[in-house]
Amino acid sequence: MSDLRDLYQEQILEHSKAPRNFRELGTANHQAEGNNPLCGDRFTVYLQMDGDAIRDISFQGAGCAISKASASMMTQALKGKTRAEAEQIFERFHKLVTGKGANGEEEELGKLAVFSGVSEYPARVKCATLAWHTLEAAFEGQPEAVLPDED
């Protein structure tokens, strides 16, 4: 049996209670909304892009602990990164939460590795990836994220 603490790691709970970069971004030049109709989670991700670089990033909205912590830690991990780097991190993160990752993945993900427990809870993968899909939409200049059927 999987232990609940594998899913609800200390850092995840902490970020869900006190999310970082949790505000509207006045200087944003990209933003998108992500909405999981299944559970009512809804976030807006704001980006201030400087050429290809993420100068600033923030989010707002409401959702479960997993989706909120994921959004919060995403903003921390991506500030200062380029779009290509951000997309590479999402790819690794995605593999991690769907349990398809190779062993090296966790190290490269740094703090984001605390989401590894999600792979034991297939129903919660969508929560962990909501903010990231919303980020993708913001990069693409789409107002709303289209969530894939399969995560």
Binding site: L4, L7, C39, G40, G63, C64, A65, I66, Y121, C127
Partner: peptide, 21 residues
């Protein structure tokens, strides 16, 4: 606590409830 999290934790206890809208 978001209902989704309540649902996951109860599920680990063998309890099936519905969460959402």
């Amino acid at each position: 606590v978001h209902p989704h999290d309540i649902g996951t934790i109860l599920d680990q206890e063998g309890i099936a409830i519905r969460t959402g809208h």
